[in-house]
């Protein structure tokens, strides 16, 4: 970490920073605002660790906006994205699902999850399996 390079110069990476964003920062934003905030952080050569997760339709919107930026923002090649969920979405019984949905509705988000988003020029790959998550960085 450290040695953060400011600006959007993706071709010559001299460093990066990891930025943590609490869910409270995006809770009151609409989908457009949330995606704008996330992409602004990523475009600043940061790896974003977001408390909680985006809605499925926001995740697809993030992918669409990312695709639109490739070719328009110099040296931007896209993002790497991973979500780690506390329960891995595996609440199989009805009571568990209701309890989880109720808790999510109360805080207006899934706070048991963590979302990692980084620019593809810095994050080569995010390998995920139920037991661990690994970030592989470009040299």
């Amino acid at each position: 970490m450290v040695k953060k390079k400011r600006g959007k110069n993706f071709g010559k990476i001299k460093g990066f920073s990891i930025q943590f964003l609490p869910f409270s920062e995006i809770r009151n934003l609409d989908s457009t605002g949330r995606i704008k905030k996330v992409l602004n952080i990523v475009l600043g050569n940061n790896i974003l660790i977001l408390q909680g997760r985006l809605k499925p339709e926001e995740e697809t919107r993030l992918i669409e906006d990312t695709m639109a930026m490739i070719g328009h923002v110099k040296n931007f090649k896209g993002i790497e994205l991973a979500v780690i969920s506390g329960n891995n979405g595996a609440q199989t019984n009805l009571f568990g699902k209701i309890r989880q949905n109720l808790a999510n509705a109360l805080v207006r988000g899934d706070l048991g999850a963590v979302t990692i988003i980084g620019p593809a020029t810095i994050v080569k790959e995010i390998k995920k399996n139920p037991k661990k998550i690994e970030l592989f960085l470009n040299r």
């Binding site: 499925p56 339709e57 995740e59 992918i63 991973a82 995010i126 390998k127 995920k128």
Partner: peptide
């Protein structure tokens, strides 16, 4: 390939929604 790719989960999440 590793199936725990977020894109797969995102697509399925959208279809479920």
């Amino acid at each position: 390939q590793n199936p725990y790719n977020q894109v797969n989960i995102t697509i399925i999440g959208n279809l479920v929604a």
